[in-house]
Design a protein around this nucleic acid. Structure first.
Length: 369
DNA sequence: CCCTCGATCAC
DNA sequence: CCTCATATCGAGGG
């Protein structure tokens, strides 16, 4: 209970250019070369995007999300290493690191395969210098055990910590003391703030808000008109480093999904279901391995113009078998294609509305009814 | 309160 | 030219 009145000490850790760095560790000769780890769509030989590029490749202008073809142009004659993404491999490394990390902090909240928030308020008694030492130890441990570099930010809130690790990249440590928070955040561009993407940034620009400092001084009423209740309140808090969302170590996934790119655009439901079969298997496997059942099934379609259509159904009672997924999807895609005759480019499946053992219907519930 | 759907974010 | 996975919000309808 002693941490009850302490100012929080929050960290954010980000493994640098993770997928590409894992490949470098496995094959150190790659370090001198541009490396791009790619997701191939399977449409044609070279279609797809760059998932992660090492800093050598970034030096030539390559960015993640960039079509592979474009990246290759930028790396013409630069001896690039083009590597197919191997998610399983990165998952193993990530799990090892996250497990070790969870031993070194009070609370760890992974937010992706290569990043996590952590809380060290209690173990440092709220002292940022002790937290700095802990963070250096964490970076050192990852370097010596996995040969990987990471960037870390420390601050009094998640938004501050995240911003810190971002500015510390690659390989650095940024400590924002509570009393420095305002000066640190003030001059930064709003789009740097966690939760502000392209759409939000452009809305803010329209309101003549371009720095986090300006956001902090914005009229709450006006912000609410632009962003709604929840988000406007969050933005205002985060811009002052006062976002209060806690670091949670106990988060369970609430959905599993899989999207595949079709060999070619189509409206044919049979074809869609056939090509989505591996996706169904994947989602079903995730359900099995996590021991979850779901109630809501969603068919996802991404049309030729890249707009997204979804259609979902909720089962009366939780299910987890593959046939409920397959059969449900057939219905949903039939209904979807009946409404619009647009062609699908990518299709997917999502299960959500998990029920855990606590509120699972038990035999006694049935006997009572 | 529950369900459905689209949008946004960020990985 | 344009991958993939997840969480969250708000609107609209019941």
């Amino acid at each position: 209970m002693k941490s009850e009145f302490l100012q929080r000490v929050i960290g954010h850790i980000d493994l640098d250019y993770f997928y590409a760095q894992v490949e470098e560790v496995e094959n150190p000769a790659l370090k001198e070369r541009p490396v791009i780890v790619c997701v191939f769509s399977g449409r044609t030989e070279d279609r797809g995007v760059v998932s992660t590029a090492n800093y050598v490749a970034r030096g030539f202008g390559v960015r993640s999300g960039m079509p592979i073809v474009n990246a290759k142009k930028l790396l013409q004659g630069k001896d690039p290493a083009v590597i197919r993404m191997n998610h399983e491999k990165y998952e193993v490394v990530s799990t090892r690191i996250m497990d070790a990390l969870s031993e070194k902090v009070d609370v760890l909240e992974p937010t992706g395969i290569d990043e996590a928030f952590f809380d060290v308020t209690a173990s440092t008694s709220g002292d940022f210098e002790r937290a700095r030492t802990a963070a250096m130890g964490i970076k050192e441990a990852i370097l010596s055990t996995e040969h990987l570099t990471a960037s870390v930010g420390l601050g009094r809130s998640k938004a501050v910590a995240k911003l810190g690790s971002d500015l510390a990249k690659p390989g650095g440590l940024k400590v924002v003391l509570p009393e420095q928070t305002k000066d640190f955040l003030g001059p930064l561009a709003v789009e740097k703030l966690y939760g502000v993407g392209p759409k939000g940034a452009s809305l803010l620009k329209g309101a003549h808000i371009s720095t986090i400092g300006q956001l902090a001084g914005a009229d709450p009423q006006e912000l609410e008109k632009l962003f709604g209740k929840k988000l406007s309140v969050y933005l205002l808090e985060a811009s002052k480093g006062n976002d209060s969302d806690p670091v949670r170590g106990d988060l369970e996934p609430t959905q599993f999904s899989r999207i595949v790119t079709l060999k070619e655009d189509t409206t044919d439901v049979e074809e869609i279901l056939s090509q989505l079969e591996t996706g169904v298997g994947h989602v079903h496997e995730k359900l099995s391995s996590s021991g979850k059942s779901f109630r809501t099934l969603t068919a996802i379609g991404i049309l030729t113009d890249l707009s997204t259509k979804t259609k979902s159904k909720t089962y009366e009672t939780p299910v987890s078998d593959e046939e409920s997924i397959r059969g449900g999807l057939a219905e949903l895609f039939d209904e979807m294609s009946a409404v619009s005759d647009k062609q699908f480019r990518r299709v997917g499946v999502r299960v959500s509305g998990f029920t855990d053992a606590r509120d699972q219907k038990s035999l006694s519930d049935f006997l009572q009814a």
